[in-house]
């Protein structure tokens, strides 16, 4: 049985992103500002410092490394800078707790 590529990659492929902390290069894809897929390889995994420093969480599935925060930031930054495409064309959401009308007076006061 041949392994098939994800049909969604036809229109928007994975793109390389390098981590600002350890320099690991992964392939990433963002469907939206809050949706990310990351393809690692052995070299990237070996370079990741957070992974090396991580310790198992409690529970039977605690050995799973849930993700690298530095890499997540690097991917987000690449998307903000326009170096990584975001499939969804909605603009980047601002802080949902930030209400411009409410604070405008304070800012300008």
């Amino acid at each position: 049985m041949a392994v098939r590529p994800d049909v969604r990659l036809d229109d928007a492929p994975m793109q390389p992103v390098s981590c600002g902390t350890c320099g690991a290069v992964v392939e990433a894809r963002k469907s939206s500002w809050d949706q990310t897929s990351i393809q690692w390889n052995d070299d990237a995994l070996a370079a990741c410092m957070e992974r090396r420093a991580s310790s198992p969480r409690p529970g039977p599935n605690g050995a799973t490394f849930t993700g690298c925060a530095a890499l997540r930031d690097a991917i987000r930054e690449a998307a903000v800078r326009g170096l990584l495409d975001v499939v969804d064309d909605e603009p980047l959401k601002t802080n949902p707790d930030h209400h411009p009308d409410q604070y405008d007076t304070e800012v300008h006061a």
């Binding site: 939206s32 949706q35 990310t36 990351i38 393809q39 690692w40 993700g67």
Partner: peptide, 15 residues
């Protein structure tokens, strides 16, 4: 093959 076992992450935007 490495592609079968290499780490892959996929987080869905549930909004």
């Amino acid at each position: 093959k490495p592609e079968m076992t290499d780490r892959f992450e996929f987080e869905i935007d549930t909004t």
